[in-house]
Design a binder for these strands. Structure first.
Lengths: 230, 230
DNA sequence: AACTTAAATTACTCGTCAGTAAATTAATGA
DNA sequence: TCATTAATTTACTGACGAGTAATTTAAGTT
């Protein structure tokens, strides 16, 4: 029950002595809103960490609050409730993967190259606390409304992968395959990283991704086998 | 709260009228033990189903008991406690995968062929209720003793895959690769099936496995690309 | 028939934890 | 200075659910 730094972090924005109290109220309002948002995200981050460490159901809101040196009702003040908290963690994870798509999609020449970059970013995201939540949060723990939003977001990522696969088949950089099942296989392999990756691993996420990509691109069969002359 | 058939299934072993009550007590004892085992496994199966349907934490032991038309204390009579129940589900799942290894390991000619058969059986197992438990049961929900046994069993499966990969590299049926990461990728893709496979799917487990195996064997890059050096 | 053991039930305890009401303190604004 | 709103706490409720004690019913055993 170690009390980490409190949310009320005066030290971060010290009231500079020389400054007149309220030059423009707009600036103050913006700063206050930003502060509020920072506290909110601090709670969400703490939750993600705790969920990953102990699992969603073994983490109480008291735990989450204590992790940032605050009491439970504040969680309700900043985030709605426990489900909402999990949902926010989930969304943050999804956002990271979306970012991977964004940066990769405008970059490569062939679709396969773009896919490879997406997968690298994907792996990076999965190894974080939010990635863990994204992958292992159970829709079962969310009520109908949130659950369907989660499914929607997951589906968008899935569709993004399929689109890249189809584009690759189109431009000839990817062998003909079932895009749906292939996307499932690829995403599954990556998502599963969240099950075994524990902080101090021998390989960095990028290295893991590289090996996975090697498998996905070239397969297991040796070159000699490709021409099928046995 | 529909009361399914009770555990006390007299109808299954009707007391035949003509039979003398106890020809050999050994037979009766064996039959009683078998009955007991049947009830025990019925509970475990019901638990696996419920866990898959609602998640471990959203399933009460009352639910499990009610599912077989019985009351909670009986669960404690036949199985130890909730953790134990989950653990048993887990073990049953592991057993199915072990069986896949057993039947495949004596069959194929090359290691790659054996691996492919293991993967097919693996996929079959994963789509069941026990497979779900095996894949999604959190060690976090088990105390130290059970958790480490679970890790042990998981590790054995992992080692089995790596051994096959190494054997394949040895006998030339598998391209040189990092066995550890490759096993993680392959197992991850398959395990992930438990996250999206919901009873009535377009493809049978065997078909899913076939597509996954296609990807793992040949990769995404088209043949034309294989000879090209980058 | 009397005794022992197992099977199964009812009716509880006890801890945990999500969620809330009400009070308090600090900040903002007029 | 006074009023209003946000930030934060204390102290609670209420439910659910794991696990148990005590009891009853049934089944073998001698």
């Amino acid at each position: 029950m170690l009390k980490t730094r409190s949310l009320t972090a005066k030290s971060v924005t010290p009231p500079r002595r020389g400054r007149p109290p309220s030059l423009s109220p707009w600036r103050d309002v913006a700063a206050r809103d930003a502060e509020r948002e920072r506290k909110r995200t601090a709670l969400i981050r703490a939750a993600a960490q705790a969920f990953r460490a102990n699992g969603f159901h073994n983490t109480s809101l008291d735990d989450v609050a204590a992790a940032v040196g605050v009491t439970k009702p504040l969680v309700y003040h900043y985030v709605g409730n426990k489900q909402q908290l999990l949902f926010e963690c989930f969304c943050t994870g999804v956002e990271q993967i979306r970012a991977a798509f964004k940066t990769a999609e405008h970059s490569g020449t062939t679709a396969r190259e773009r896919l490879v970059r997406v997968l690298a970013g994907y792996a990076e995201a999965i190894t974080g606390d939010f990635g863990w939540c994204m992958v292992r949060a159970e829709d079962l723990d969310l009520d109908a409304a949130l659950s369907s939003r989660v499914k929607q977001l997951k589906s968008e990522i899935d569709q993004g992968l399929r689109r890249l696969l189809r584009a690759g088949i189109e431009d000839g950089s990817i062998r003909g395959c079932d895009p749906k099942m292939t996307a499932f296989a690829v995403a599954g392999a990556l998502n599963w990283i969240a099950h075994w990756h524990r902080g101090r691993e021998a390989l960095t996420p990028a290295e893991i991704a590289a090996r996975f990509i090697d498998l996905f691109e070239l397969g297991l069969a040796p070159r000699a086998d490709r021409s099928r002359r046995r």
